[in-house]
């Protein structure tokens, strides 16, 4: 018997690590990996609650999250490649065209 809160704590920790990584990392690829980390944290919550509530819907959601993550990774990495081609850098602090 493991309390569900342990899983949730682990989930929250992973998510927090993802957020922190997103905030402190400068390499754009690492930022994407931080996002994956956050998604994994959320997935763990889904599975834990699915087990707790005795329903399989959580598993399905995790599956969809994975698909979306895969699509996002594909597009995101393509964007990274094209940004690198034009800006010659992977440092997000130098990609500051959002400011006019």
């Amino acid at each position: 018997m493991i309390p569900i809160s342990y899983y949730l704590l682990l989930s929250a920790f992973l998510f927090a690590c993802g957020v922190t990584g997103f905030l402190i990392k400068r390499n754009i690829i690492t930022l994407f990996m931080s996002i994956e980390l956050m998604l994994n944290g959320v997935n763990l919550s889904f599975i834990a609650f699915a087990t707790r509530l005795q329903t399989l819907d959580g598993h399905i959601f995790v599956f969809f999250v994975m698909v979306v993550a895969a699509a996002e990774a594909a597009v995101g990495l393509a964007i990274i490649i094209s940004v690198y081609r034009t800006r010659e850098t992977l440092n997000v602090d130098r990609v500051n065209l959002l400011k006019l």
Partner: peptide
């Protein structure tokens, strides 16, 4: 606040 830095925006979102 409009620094153009993505991480700064992300920080505000967080």
């Amino acid at each position: 606040q409009q620094s153009g830095l993505i991480r700064s925006y992300a920080g505000w979102v967080a």
